[in-house]
Amino acid sequence: MGESGDIDEIWRRAEGGAVAILDCREEIPCDPCEAVCARGAIVVGKNVCDLPRYDPGLCNGCGRCVAICPGMAIYLLDRSSRDGGARLTLPYEMKEEIKAGDEVWALDEDGSPLGKGKVVKTAKMNKRDHSLLVTVDVPEEWALKVRGVRIRVMSIGEPLEVRGCQREEDHLLCRCEEISRSQAREYAAMGFNSLRALRRFSRVGLGYCQGRFCQAMLVDEFSTAAFRDREGVGVFKVRPPVRPVKLGRLGGENG
């Protein structure tokens, strides 16, 4: 966690009260944590893609960075309680309601339940929506592992293994005109030199949706089938109207 602060220092400081832990590892354009930190503990700098530099020594555990982080990659650790556990404050925005006193699952970064924790308090993250900051007590050994709390844990099961080889089947390409891939390829094999010509004869992309839905896929298909680059294959000629419109309206009727 080089730039996100020395973990040993964070661990020590957490004995005195809440302190932020940043789990931000990737160079993407993002900097709201910097703006929200009144203490200047988090600095992104001029280049918005740089990783934040975090100085835990300046953190007062206000939790504003936890509430603003789009990646939900910041949480608070507080080890000041006398019973030796860890008190974590995490963002929460799932459908199931959480309130103080609830027993909740504590999940690690892979979504595996570590066990149950007890909700100490919840606070609205901001005035503009219904998301929460949830403070939960967990055993100390989970302090750096917990990434989320949940009322309900998904139980989806494993996918089933399918035996036997899967034959390549034919399927539709153009849903409106119900033209299959093999039909389209038959037309492509006739040697048309553009997507426009292919459309004229095969009717792919000539239906109600006018190819707005399938064009990108057809370009790929046709360029593969005809061994041509996509720019050479081209696009459908665009003609008005680009959305279906009642004839009466085109004729000047209102409503």
Binding site: R175, E178, Y208, C209, R212, F213, R243, P244
Partner: peptide, 22 residues
Amino acid sequence: YSPRLGEPRGPFCMIGRCTECA
């Protein structure tokens, strides 16, 4: 149900483009 093959179809784009929900 599609006119030629009689296949069931459902909404695909939800923004009025694909016309499958007609």
